[in-house]
Design a protein around this nucleic acid. Structure first.
Lengths: 347, 347
DNA sequence: ACTTTATTAGACAACGTTGTCAGATGTCCC
DNA sequence: GGGACATCTGACAACGTTGTCTAATAAAGT
């Protein structure tokens, strides 16, 4: 135990090729190398080729610190978030990191408090100091007007994911929660269910209301109206969903199918059914929303609507980097994943 | 939709205070400010106070890029991982990021491929270029000898989380999986169970074998031996766990309690029991390992062993930064979380 | 042939810190 | 009182890029 290498002071890292080395090998000035690296126009074809060859030869990569110190860019994108759901954030971060890697960017992830009054100042300060090339915001901080104001005033590019207010204000990425929820209603109606129940999402989360509206409207189209006591509030948490489900299942005229505002609450509904001796889907159909990992880690696996979370994060990165389609709003598709938690009524 | 602010070229970020501003305000040289910022010795008390005041006054924070370009450090720690489990990585990242924030560091997270032959070169290259202050490795790449060699040769401080091979080789953080698994066996024995079953973890993961050994030995201490057909291989996945559980439950002399190598497989066991009309814990006790989020998002909630994942990541950061206890190995505690998936034999 | 203009390339100064090294000041001892 | 020493501070040169400005060359227009 005593001869374990200690992490200490002096540590001469291996020398890495610099822009000078490349310039020397290619027989040009450092500035020309820089031009090639940054795809600036006006470099003669053969110069370009020579520089490219030297870069490849030396396995040269520009030092990001020097780059962002000297230039205006950092090749760094900031992701600020307040931890609503682990799975959601894991997907967001995963999708963003992957795309960043592809594009030669890096992601700086900064947890924060959604109700911190200092948030605007803090974000601008980090952005300025790191010279962030852009910011990505996720719900719920995506809708704080003071944050949006500060970022706009500081001139930091911003892409919001799933904003609920003021959509025209910034570029953003979103999906059509309402249309997705309609799909859930059609699916249940097609299976012959007529007594539908719903457990709502967190009222502060914009998507919750959209999902409610889509589900109710689509049900109405099929001639089904939900009785008021079959629609219970929730907050996207398992515990609250479990309580709501128990309440629904105790009703004398209980629903034969329940649409939960997200997968956690759908899982809670399945669990509550199990607890009360009801078989899913024979006695009760359950449909969730998100297609989070939990959907496939319970039995029966959940029928749910796949929300393209990773793709949304990737699209947000694309919008920030701006080397693709300049359309500042991107709407992504969803998909109904039919698994085994739904079935014909009485089935 | 046309007047949405586009992310474009020129964007004058707000001016932030530099070390020169602080020096001017405090009436000292920039070098002295630097000394104060880096806690170097030999600064007179009143100078120190003046500089500190100026820093606070201007809300000055050193520019990280300039800092790591000029100095030897980056205040950046690299976390390389190959995505084994979402929940596990979310905990690792969360724990590491939080501690980094506290210490004024940042975390660079880099997904990679565990079997990429280029991994060593790639890691050293990133470390050198970013002047990373250290590297954190998680299973399974934590055990690749070529990676360890390359990092050692490049002189990059390294802390491993839960290494299985060569523990004396580097500082590391771990927990005593064997002792933890013993706890599971004692718990079941105390409840009166005599027919115990186990679903093993992935054979490539060092912890799997430790958990098996601990469980079996502790059971033996209590006079219980597991019949060979009550110990089934698994791989930490829900699907594989589900199949194994179904196989165990179909046995004529099925176990009354099952210890699964992790929570996903424990959840699968509960699910399989539900599917076959068995009530947990009345007809079957199930105990998991990890205390991952899924433990509380099924019903009944899982009795499981809490693995201090976030704390391990935080400890890894501490070891790298090295401003605390210099002991290069840190073993963290675990805890038996008794919930509702275990109960006395026969209900 | 001679300017004008586009194209390509280089010299050199930023960028905001820390490292090195030397200078200034104060303290102690003989 | 003067040297040796410890303590504190500052000037200045890195660090590795990009921005700005200017020079050299080639192409085009008169």
């Amino acid at each position: 135990m005593t001869d374990i290498q200690q992490n200490g002071a002096a540590r001469p890292l291996p020398r890495v090729a610099t822009i000078f080395d490349v310039a020397r090998v290619a027989g040009v000035s450092t500035k020309t190398v820089s031009r090639v690296l940054n795809n600036e126009a006006r470099v003669a074809d053969d110069t370009l080729a020579r520089v490219r060859a030297a870069v490849a030869d030396l396995d040269y990569r520009p030092n990001p610190n020097a780059r962002s110190l000297a230039g205006r860019r950092s090749y760094l994108i900031g992701l600020f978030y307040d931890n609503p759901s682990r799975n959601y954030m894991a997907d967001i971060m995963g999708g963003a990191i992957r795309r960043c890697q592809e594009k030669g960017y890096h992601l700086l992830t900064e947890p924060c408090e959604a109700d911190d009054p200092n948030l605007p100042r803090m974000m601008v300060s980090v952005a300025a100091r790191f010279r962030l090339d852009g910011l990505i915001l996720t719900p719920p901080i995506v809708d704080r007007p003071d944050v949006l104001d500060a970022i706009a005033q500081a001139n930091v590019p911003l892409v919001r994911i799933a904003p609920r207010t003021d959509p025209a204000r910034t570029p953003h990425v979103h999906m059509d929660d309402e249309a997705a929820a309609r799909l859930a209603a059609y699916h249940l109606a097609d299976l012959g269910h007529t007594r539908l129940g719903m457990i709502l999402g967190h009222p502060d989360h914009g998507a919750a209301e959209l999902r409610r509206r889509g589900f109710m409207n689509a049900a109405a189209e099929r001639g089904l109206t939900l009785s008021p006591d079959h629609v219970l509030p929730g907050d996207f948490s398992f515990a609250r969903g479990f309580a709501a489900a128990e309440q629904l299942l105790a009703l004398p005229n209980r629903p034969t199918a329940i649409f939960a505002g997200n997968d956690d609450m759908a899982a809670a509904t399945v669990a509550a059914a199990n607890k009360h001796g009801l078989q899913v889907p024979r006695d009760l159909s359950v449909i969730g929303f998100d297609d989070s990992p939990i959907a496939q880690v319970i039995w029966p696996p959940l029928t749910t609507i796949r929300q393209p979370t990773m793709a949304m994060a990737a699209a947000a990165v694309d919008l920030l980097i701006g080397d693709t389609d300049p359309e500042p709003v991107r709407q992504l598709g969803f998909e109904l994943m039919v698994r085994q938690s739904t079935g014909p009524v009485g089935g």
